[in-house]
Structures are given as structure tokens and as C-alpha cells.
């Protein structure tokens, strides 16, 4: 046994104790954090600078849509 084997076995044992439902929530949590971060971005960062922004050109909406699909997918499967 090397020190790597010892660390690996310890981590494997600890991670095995985490319920799969909690692991699923961690994944969904990652998407929720991203949604929160994106909503906080300034509108100059998500709209074209050279023309008046419409809802269709605001990238926040489309990024949110992509993340919403992901939350549904990771909640179902």
C-alpha cells in the first residue's frame, strides 16, 4: 500500500457514504448557483453594445433556458 492507496481508499469510503439523492442535489445545486450568477451579470455583459437590446438579444434568457432544461433533466434521470 502506498500513501496514494491509503488516501484513495479513505476518499472512496467517505464518498460512498454520501446518498445518491444528496449527490443528485449537488449537481442540481451547481446549476442553481450558475443561474444565480447569471442573473447577477450586468446587462452590458449580456447584450450587444452597438444596438438597443431587446429581450431576444439578451443572453441571460437563453443561458437560463439552457440551465432550466438541465435542472429538469437531472431531476428526472
Amino acid at each position: 500500500m502506498t500513501v496514494f492507496h491509503w488516501i484513495g481508499n479513505f476518499l472512496r469510503h467517505q464518498l460512498d457514504l454520501v446518498p445518491l439523492s444528496a449527490a443528485r442535489w449537488l449537481m442540481v445545486g451547481l446549476y442553481l448557483i450558475l443561474m444565480f450568477w447569471i442573473i447577477q451579470l450586468s446587462s452590458t455583459a449580456t447584450n450587444p453594445p452597438d444596438r438597443p437590446g431587446t429581450w431576444r438579444s439578451d443572453l441571460k434568457i437563453w443561458a437560463w433556458l439552457a440551465l432550466m432544461f438541465q435542472i429538469v433533466i437531472y431531476s428526472v434521470f
Binding site: 451547481l30 443561458a63 437531472y74
Partner: peptide
């Protein structure tokens, strides 16, 4: 294709 791409693409985008 999902968690391996979409979060990284969005962080990359902004």
C-alpha cells in the same frame, strides 16, 4: 454532453 459541457460553456461565454 450535459454536465460536462453546459456549465463550462456558460462560464466560458461570460
Amino acid at each position: 454532453e450535459w454536465i460536462g459541457c453546459i456549465p463550462a460553456m456558460l462560464v466560458g461565454a461570460f
